[in-house]
């Protein structure tokens, strides 16, 4: 039995992921306690530094939950976020930290189940990797 409870930070787009979270709540589906949500107006606003800070503060994993690439309200928010996530993966690799600790997911506002499943999958993945520090 793995007792490790990974600390995960999820940056969620207000327009899709957070709506999905509300749908999940309505479905009585709850997020794992170890996943902390940071709501952002658009994932395109998330900078590389925002993605690094959680690791600096002790997080074991980070993910960005945003819109589908063709349905971002601000046109290219999630595309920009995905590029920044890729950049942070490279930084983590250079630090000999598994790049899988950071991911990006494309969600639909109405799919609450998927929102919770992403959090569970990410938790399982980070549990397998173990703590960063």
């Amino acid at each position: 039995m793995n007792d490790f409870k990974p600390q995960i930070i999820a940056f969620c787009c207000t327009n899709c992921a957070s709506s999905a979270a509300q749908v999940a709540e309505g479905m009585k589906k709850t997020l794992p306690e170890n996943v902390k949500i940071i709501q952002v107006p658009c994932t395109g606003r998330i900078e590389v530094l925002h993605l690094l800070k959680p690791f600096e503060e002790g997080a074991d994993g980070v993910y960005v939950a945003g819109c589908q690439e063709d349905s971002c309200q601000y046109v290219s928010g999630i595309t920009k976020a995905a590029k920044r996530v890729e950049h942070v993966k490279k930084i983590l690799e250079e630090l000999d930290i598994e790049p899988e600790r950071i991911s990006v997911f494309n969600l639909y506002a109405g799919k609450g189940h998927e929102f919770v499943q992403v959090a569970l999958d990410m938790t399982d993945k980070i549990k397998e990797l173990g703590p960063v520090m």
Partner: peptide
């Protein structure tokens, strides 16, 4: 200043990882 923050954070993460 943005890149200063990124490099500083990177150095801190590395230090933390290596104790």
């Amino acid at each position: 200043s943005k890149e200063v923050g990124i490099l500083a954070s990177t150095l801190r993460i590395d230090a933390k990882k290596n104790g």
